[in-house]
Design a protein around this nucleic acid. Structure first.
Length: 190
DNA sequence: CCCTGATTCGC
DNA sequence: GCGAATCAGG
């Protein structure tokens, strides 16, 4: 990819909008966040509207050995998760305006088996994360009303590829014989 | 661990 | 000029 005028303009705009480098990279496509940051610096529009947190002198680099340099283009060409329009983070913050979410975007995943309360055998660790904070290895157990702004997901640790953490998986996936006629068609709070 | 931006320097 | 590697940090 190359920095065409259009891409540079978009970069400037998004950077000015307060998006993080990785978010901009995802938006542009074909570049990594490093590329974005590098470009931002070259354009001289670093240090956004924010006081320099730490003007640390920063020591010189230890002189990198010529050793390994990964042949780049892999991620560039590889399918890039669009992930558009889902800005904002909280960990190492760089949040931009979080667009209003549409209800359909956050429809609760419906477990195939009706959830039934079990005896607690382990501490429940719900971190109550928003959909934007959800990661591949985070529990997607919905908490609250999906139509409400305080809707969250459990967010507990789970094996990548798994929908729920151990606790919620035990609730969601039960043998059919445990299922008695109709039960709450909704999720228990925990 | 996730993430952030900053910097260096081989290309 | 570009951006991966690395750093420093939340």
């Amino acid at each position: 990819m190359q920095w065409t005028d259009e891409r540079v303009e978009l970069l400037k705009k998004l950077w000015a909008d307060g998006l993080s480098a990785s978010q901009i990279a995802a938006e542009l496509g074909g570049v990594t966040r490093n590329a974005v940051i590098g470009k931002v610096h070259r354009l001289g529009l670093s240090g956004r509207a924010k006081s320099a947190p730490s003007a640390a002198p920063r020591l010189r680099k230890p002189a990198a050995s010529p050793s390994h340099r990964v042949s780049a283009p892999i991620a560039a060409t590889a399918a890039r998760a669009p992930q558009s329009a889902t800005y904002a983070t909280r960990g190492a913050t760089a949040l931009a305006a979080a667009p209003v979410m549409e209800a359909r975007t956050i429809a609760a995943p419906a477990p195939r088996v009706v959830p039934v309360q079990l005896v607690e055998t382990q501490p429940i660790v719900c971190e109550n994360v928003t959909i934007m904070e959800l990661r591949e290895n985070m529990c997607r157990w919905p908490l609250g009303d999906p139509s409400q702004p305080d809707f969250r997901f459990c967010g507990g640790r789970c094996t990548p590829g798994q929908a729920y953490c151990a606790h919620h998986a035990s609730i969601a996936y039960q043998p059919t014989n445990d299922r008695r006629r109709d039960r709450r068609p909704s999720f228990p709070t925990h």
